[in-house]
Design a protein around this nucleic acid. Structure first.
Lengths: 187, 187
DNA sequence: TCTATCATGTAAAGGGTTACATGATTCT
DNA sequence: AGAATCATGTAACCCTTTACATGATAGA
């Protein structure tokens, strides 16, 4: 029952289906038509992942044989699925997450709207900004070592990563401002 | 013989060993001590990958039993390995590569110094900048669709990706300037 | 002495990719 | 009539992750 381990694809599927029930094909289309493609790609990973999540009780399938020739399995999220998703969305961004895959924090944010209040989303982003700043500093001190060497490419590549983090930090500022504006308008 | 398919880790290992012979442990330390950690991590992936590359004739191992109790397997790159590495380094950056993993183009660049002339590196970066601009435009037109909706997070997340690409494009400009300066000094 | 680190791996489990299979419906 | 697309999957292969194993040497 306890969600042993979930892959990024698993969590992405939970987040997508949390926004509205969907079939494997719906998700496949979503991945091929939108920048969500970074999550994954092929039916060969999506269908088994959906079946896994159903076995673990995080998704529930309903057969839609009325409209289609071949029965569509339409998935919706269960209470356990929501719990697993929320646990993931509430985890603070860590240095380890940035190292493992720097896109994950934003991917998580993109799926969090239904499950986090504006205030919670803002503090999530503040945590992200802190993680960016900390890891960025670490990379800068490593860059100083590299710049002594005679190779140009590795230092430039590292500089690219550092610039990217700085850029993300600026994005965080704008995103927080947008969320605050939205919250003010909602009152 | 023909390198059926190489994983990113395989190519990273080729690139690293191309810069100088190294043992599995050397590489493990490199990955845990530097931002190269994005490549991989655990001995459980590194050692099998090295053994694979040796079997395929892209690396060659020499036993260093003189100095150590346990024999160190020190790898160096073969002519075939150099060929495979160069083929990879010379591939132009495509939209597909950006979708699959946006860090790859810079990772490739970081390993290219020995195998590309300054001029070749510059034209590689120009190709990267074009790919960034093209894919960035695509994302922007998708963003316009999203901004009509009532959800805030997905549009913000996409904006984050677009900002990141813009930032990378600026990095490319600086990197090219640095390479040109280096080339001028080398003459 | 015992802990950490050097240095090498192996074993089990499980996920992802690629390619294939199936059959109905809609478009040209 | 034929091609593309809807819509579901399965199978084989291989890689990665996690955890464990081994044994020597250096430092507390």
């Amino acid at each position: 029952m306890a969600a042993a381990t979930l892959t990024t694809l698993d969590r992405a599927l939970l987040g997508i289906i949390d926004r509205g029930r969907a079939s494997g094909y719906d998700i496949h289309r979503l991945f091929s038509a939108t920048p969500m493609a970074v999550f994954s790609s092929s039916p060969g990973s999506i269908y088994p992942a959906l079946a896994r999540l159903e076995r673990r009780g995080l998704l529930r399938a309903r057969l839609d044989s009325a409209t289609e020739a071949r029965p569509r399995r339409v998935y919706s999220i269960t209470r356990q699925g929501v719990a697993a998703l929320e646990a993931w969305l509430r985890e603070p961004v860590t240095r380890e997450e940035l190292v493992r895959d720097a896109r994950l924090p934003v991917l998580r944010f993109s799926l969090a709207e239904r499950r986090l209040t504006r205030a919670q989303a803002i503090s999530y982003l503040e945590g992200y900004r802190r993680a960016l700043a900390d890891y960025g500093k670490e990379l800068e001190s490593y860059l100083e070592q590299l710049e002594g060497g005679e190779e140009l490419h590795p230092a430039l590549a590292l500089r690219s990563g550092i610039d990217g983090f700085r850029c993300q930090a600026r994005w965080v500022d704008h995103a927080i401002a947008d969320l605050e504006r939205a919250e003010a308008e909602e009152r």
